[in-house]
C-alpha cells in the first residue's frame, strides 16, 4: 500500500546528507587528482579498500576515529600503486585505474572475510544541547557526525586552495600543460603523486563513511558503484568544488528518495527505483556534456595524458 505520508521530511533530508557524504568525499579527492591532469578510474577500488580498512581498524580498536584514519591511509596506500605505475612507469591511466578497481575489490573482499556480520561502535553525533533540539534544523544542520562537517570543510578548503593559494595555482598549471609547468621548473611528477595520494585518502574516507556510518557493517562490494558515481559527479561539477557539493547532494537526494518510495510501497517496480540513481547520473552526464564548448573549457587540458620529461 502506498503511504507517502509516512515519509518524514526531517529524516529524509538527514538521510540525504548521510548518503551524499561518501560520494562528496571521494569526488573532492578525484577533483584534485583530475585538476593535476591525472585521470584515476580506481576510485571504486580505493573506496572499498577504505571501507574495509576503516571497518577493521574501528572494530579492532573500538574507535571510529582510528577507523577513519586507517581508511585514509589504506586508500592512499592503494593509490600510490597507481601513482607509481602511471607517473614512474608511464602506464596508460585508463587501464591502470581499471586495474586498481579490480584489484581493490578483490583485496577488500579478502581482507574483509572475517568481518562480515560484525558491528562497530557508532560515530558520535554532534551534540550542541538545546540547539540540537530545534525541530528540523537541529537535526538536519547541527545533528550530524563530524565527518559530514569535515567533508563540507574540505569542499571549502579545496575551493580556497585553487582560488587563493600559490600551490593551488601550480597544481592547476601542471594539469593544464605539464610541459610548460616542467619548463618553469615545477616538479610535475611529485605534484601529481601528492595529488593522487590525496585523492586516495579522500576516497578511503568516503568508503569508510559507508561501512562505519551509513550502513554500518561490512559486506562484500558494499560501495556498489559509489566510486563511479563520484567520477561522474566530478564531470557534472565541471571540476569545481561548489558544484561537486551540489552534484553529490543531488545524487544523495535521488538515492534516498527512491529508497523511501520503495519503503512506502509506490506502484513502481523496485528494480526500476533501484536503478534510478544510475539512470539519473547518466542523464545528467548527457546534459552536461551536450554543451560541447563549455565542457571542453572546464576540463583540465592535460587530463589523462602521460608526462615524460625528455630533458
Amino acid at each position: 500500500m502506498t503511504d507517502l505520508a509516512a515519509i518524514n521530511p526531517t529524516l529524509l533530508v538527514f538521510a540525504l546528507i548521510v548518503a551524499s557524504t561518501p560520494i562528496l568525499l571521494a569526488a573532492l579527492g578525484e577533483l584534485v587528482v583530475e585538476r593535476s591532469g591525472v585521470l584515476n578510474l580506481g576510485v571504486e577500488g580505493m573506496m572499498i579498500v577504505g571501507a574495509i580498512c576503516g571497518f577493521a581498524a574501528a572494530y579492532e580498536s573500538q574507535s571510529p576515529l582510528l577507523g577513519f584514519a586507517a581508511a585514509a591511509l589504506g586508500g592512499a596506500a592503494l593509490s600510490l600503486i597507481f601513482a607509481f605505475l602511471t607517473q614512474f612507469l608511464l602506464s596508460n591511466q585508463v587501464a591502470t585505474g581499471l586495474a586498481l578497481t579490480l584489484f581493490g575489490l578483490g583485496l577488500a573482499a579478502m581482507l574483509g572475510q572475517n568481518y562480515s556480520g560484525e558491528a562497530v561502535p557508532a560515530t558520535p553525533r554532534l551534540n550542541l544541547g538545546p540547539i540540537s533540539d530545534i525541530p528540523f534544523v537541529g537535526r538536519v544542520v547541527f545533528g550530524h557526525d563530524w565527518v559530514v562537517y569535515f567533508s563540507l570543510l574540505m569542499a571549502a578548503l579545496v575551493w580556497a586552495f585553487f582560488k587563493y593559494t600559490r600551490p593551488g595555482l601550480i597544481l592547476r598549471a601542471v594539469g593544464e600543460n605539464h610541459d610548460a609547468a616542467h619548463a618553469l621548473g615545477y616538479p610535475v611528477v611529485a605534484i601529481r603523486v601528492a595529488a593522487i595520494a590525496f585523492g586516495g585518502a579522500m576516497a578511503g574516507l568516503g568508503g569508510a563513511y559507508i561501512s562505519l556510518v551509513r550502513v554500518p557493517t561490512w559486506t562484500e562490494g558494499m560501495t556498489a558503484g559509489a566510486g563511479w558515481i563520484a567520477l561522474a559527479i566530478v564531470v557534472f561539477g565541471a571540476w569545481r568544488s561548489g558544484r561537486v557539493v551540489l552534484g553529490a547532494y543531488l545524487f544523495g537526494g535521488v538515492t534516498i528518495l527512491q529508497l523511501n518510495l520503495q519503503a512506502a510501497g509506490v506502484a513502481m517496480s523496485p528494480e526500476l527505483l533501484s536503478a534510478s540513481p544510475y539512470l539519473i547520473t547518466i542523464a545528467v552526464l548527457v546534459v552536461i556534456s551536450a554543451d560541447r564548448s563549455r565542457a571542453a573549457l572546464n576540463a583540465p587540458a592535460a587530463l589523462g595524458r602521460t608526462f615524460h620529461a625528455s630533458s
Binding site: L89, S91, A95, T96
Partner: peptide, 19 residues
Amino acid sequence: AAIQSFQGMLLFFLLAGDV
C-alpha cells in the same frame, strides 16, 4: 576473493612491464 586480487595483480604487473 583471493583469486580476484590475483587477477588484478596480474594486470598491474603487465602494465608495469610495458615500460
